[in-house]
Amino acid sequence: MYHSFEVDGVDHTLWLSASRHGYRLHLRDEVIAPVAFTERSDSSGILTIAGQSEPVRFVIDGELIHLHIRGRTRTLRYIDPLGAYAAGNDGTCPLVARAPMPGRVVAITVSPGDSVSAGTALMMIESMKLETIIRSPQDGIVERIHVKENESFEHDAVLVTLSKEGF
């Protein structure tokens, strides 16, 4: 079972193996060896990859690994297989509309119990200067609205829970 890191919504599988000369990194279509990481302080280190050394600044925040390498910043999320597979494939998981970005609720256009179809506007949110309409991802019944008008929410927050019709 390979390890997996998510970067900007894309999963990257990899495996690390040890050898006499440090670690080998197995990516989907290449093997890079040797790779090594020397920690210099709590937040800086040197990555040696295929004979080249790169200074790296990093912060590990739970499953998130924030990295700054060669002038570029990325955040990678380690996907713990126990959690990831447990959540997936669960047929009883309710349908939800999530916040595509952090923001604030401007107006809610549905009420619990309303029957909606895919694409029905559920609410209008406002983030910085943009108004966005949150639409229903599927046909269903509005079960619960998790936010109030004017309330702020974070990215990925559950805004509306739907249930399947006749379920």
Partner: peptide
């Protein structure tokens, strides 16, 4: 790959 290598290590 440099990011994946650092994250892996």
């Amino acid at each position: 790959s440099a990011f994946l290598a650092s994250a892996a290590l």
